[in-house]
């Protein structure tokens, strides 16, 4: 078995694509959040791969940690918003929450 950096990049490409697809196809806010997590994960995987295999991108490791931290923060805020949204309209369907429509 072989493993090159571009293999990892392609794995993450597929993962990211799945995330985009999920984001597009679901309407429930939490489902969209889950897809978003997949996309973030794909990005972190790329950073780790680049950092691990090359001598030049060591910072990738710390970037990956920051990505994970930011993802946690983002999830917390997103869920807080969802819960607030749910409290006010008993639904978290994003299509119904379209007051921002111009």
């Amino acid at each position: 078995m072989i493993l090159y950096t571009y293999h990892i990049f392609r794995v993450s490409a597929v993962l990211f694509g799945l995330g985009v697809f999920g984001m597009r196809v679901r309407r429930n806010a939490i489902s969209m959040l889950l897809s978003l997590e997949l996309m973030i994960n794909a990005a972190a995987l790329n950073l780790v791969a680049a950092a691990a295999f090359t001598g030049t991108y060591i910072s990738g490791f710390s970037m990956a940690v920051f990505v994970i931290v930011i993802a946690a923060a983002e999830a917390a805020v997103a869920l807080a918003i969802f819960i607030a949204l749910f409290k006010s309209r008993r639904s978290i369907d994003v299509d119904e929450a379209a007051e921002m429509k111009g």
Binding site: I2, L3, Y4, T5, Y6, A51, A52, F53, T54, G55, I58, F61
Partner: peptide
């Protein structure tokens, strides 16, 4: 860049 296993670090 294309690098093979094993990782540097």
């Amino acid at each position: 860049p294309r690098k093979a296993f094993p990782p540097v670090h």
